[in-house]
Design a protein around this nucleic acid. Structure first.
Lengths: 345, 345
DNA sequence: CTGAAAGCGCTTACAG
DNA sequence: CTGAAAGCGCTTACAG
């Protein structure tokens, strides 16, 4: 007759506030106040409680706390495409900021599926998140996730169509301006623009910025693609097409680093030197590309980390009671100069 | 005398189980059982409760549920570097799997910082996550996050050093084999290997796999780098060095797509045709590179989504009570053939 | 099949 | 400054 194999206790008992209170010889209420830095607790009592907590390696149960306080100490990060190069740095920066503030982050990737997104939103609301951050990967406006939601919401990168929402997004007009100004400042005269899809706002805004700068100096582009894609393939083919048409350029402004990479290839195939004969500027400052090309690629950085951090801070303040601002907040881009536009670097 | 501006109720009252019970004319207990599909509830009662819940758009409060059940319905995803191309697809797949299972996911990015990692682990444990998934971006073993943790843990991509832990990681030996077999099968005889850092297990394993295949056919590599990096720059320079030494090759096996991309550049600079003169194989099957090169790059795919999904399913089962397996589970790689090794595609 | 009651672990008025 | 008590919203033995 074998003794039944009783497995060792599966749930190791964790210390509870009650244990701490008992060990410190105070009431539950006092222990709670002491540990939460509340007002009326004597110093000696407080340190006695703190000692007890330390000894028992007490960790507050966030579910109990959340239940009684009515909020959870969590936020939801809702992204429409986690794979995106744009959402990711934003998410990382946000997660970083929240983590420092003792807030845990729920990650929800809707994968561009509206049904999934609805599902996640209600799941987050059910979990009583204290705030929601909606991250997209295009700068075109999107439908808001809802009106009169019980928690503060901020839209990052992809702004909400509703002007009463707070949205934080890069200023691509400035981005275009920076690129064009840099090329002019380094003596380029005949500038071409290989665009992304012209129907996308990012591409349109950059074209506007570039146009502004050139107009201000009384010049204009010598070439601009009529439509476009974000891909390297498009960069290669559109650049080739332009060159084969005999259009003489001394600078090419590309709407993405991938497009720029394709353009570099097309130039090399024709033995056109970069930057001596033609300068090339990309967009996104995507390390993988920008440091891999030969020469390294000058590019516009959209400061995505800044976007993410700023959004997190706003939400954090909103959780604390400070009402959220309204409207679209534009964040400037930044020029990063490398070998593809100047030899002296 | 102005009337005080009382703001509209900040906390819109959400329906509670008690509301549902009252509306359905049953007790709290019965309502709970009905909504949870528990055993002894009559069909008519159940549907009455369900109707009431629907009418009130009742959503269960997970904190209350978690508090009374002793678990939270959440899992922690602990990554050492969110930016990594390897962690990301794994995280996405895992998040996907868990989301379908009604489990919410806490995202924690330790950024390769051990202190931060400890902090996150205790935060997750404090939140009473039901499981933890540890994702790394190298296949070298790592220190386990702890022993006798109160929740199931699985290590993905980066295996735990402790054989009692469950780890799921790609089989890079198989990866190396697949690449070598493909080159032999397409008639290549003189194969070179541009490696990643030889001290990293991924590079070492691939070399082993390649070596095995060649040995089986009585041949060996005509060239292999003595050390290496994962970068495109290294691919370009090591390939150039090899070619300039006059080593004749008809195939180059690269330990990453970035290395392969650099090699392609070096080949083109010397007007060596791909794949006619030399076939090139990469590793990682990273879409951005693999579809951007000219010709497109044949590559080995480590099936990262599969890793992530599999890990999630194991954890899911473990949460359900099924004990976790032990040891390292290897997942096969997969060959994806493109233009860089064969013209008939 | 149904319900009264205890309990999960904490916070917060409200008295002392 | 301290504590008894109610309450957050649910689940789960345990009786009926």
């Amino acid at each position: 007759m074998k003794a039944p194999l009783t497995p060792p206790d599966q749930k190791p008992k964790v210390a509870t506030l009650e244990d701490v209170a008992r060990a410190a010889g105070v009431s539950l209420a006092t222990a709670s106040k002491a540990l939460n830095g509340r007002d009326r607790v004597s110093d000696t009592t407080r340190s006695r409680v703190e000692d007890a907590a330390r000894t028992l390696s007490y960790v507050r149960n966030p579910m109990a706390k959340g239940l009684s306080e009515g909020r959870s100490g969590t936020v939801g990060l809702l992204t429409s495409d986690l794979e995106g190069r744009f959402s990711l740095p934003i998410l990382m920066a946000a997660e970083d900021s929240f983590g420092a503030g003792q807030i845990s982050v729920f990650l929800c990737d809707a994968r561009g599926d509206a049904i999934r997104e609805r599902h996640y939103i209600s799941a987050l609301l059910a979990r009583r998140v204290d705030a929601i951050m909606v991250v997209g990967s295009k700068t075109d406006h999107r439908q808001p996730i809802g009106r009169d939601l019980p928690v503060p919401v901020v839209y990052v990168y992809t702004p909400s169509r509703d002007p009463r929402d707070l949205s934080i997004t890069p200023d691509n007009v400035v981005g275009g301006r920076l690129a064009a100004e840099h090329l002019l400042a380094t003596g380029r005269k005949r500038i071409a623009h290989l665009t992304g899809p012209r129907t996308e706002r990012a591409a349109a805004d950059r074209a506007i910025g570039i146009g502004q700068v050139l107009a201000e100096t009384g010049t204009s582009l010598v070439y601009e693609t009529g439509y476009g894609e974000w891909s390297e393939r498009w960069g290669r083919s559109s650049c080739a097409m332009m060159l084969d048409q005999g259009i003489a350029v001394d600078a090419i402004l590309c709407d993405s680093d991938q497009i720029a990479r394709g353009a570099l290839d097309a130039l090399r195939e024709r033995s056109i030197r970069v930057p001596e004969d033609v300068a090339v500027v990309g967009f996104d400052n995507w390390d993988v590309i920008v440091e891999g090309t030969h020469p390294a690629l000058t590019s516009i950085d959209m400061n995505l980390e800044l976007l993410g951090r700023s959004a997190a801070e706003k939400l954090f303040a909103a959780i604390g009671g400070k009402p959220l601002a309204q409207g679209v907040e534009l964040v400037d881009c930044r020029l990063v100069v490398r070998g593809s536009t100047t030899q002296t670097i």
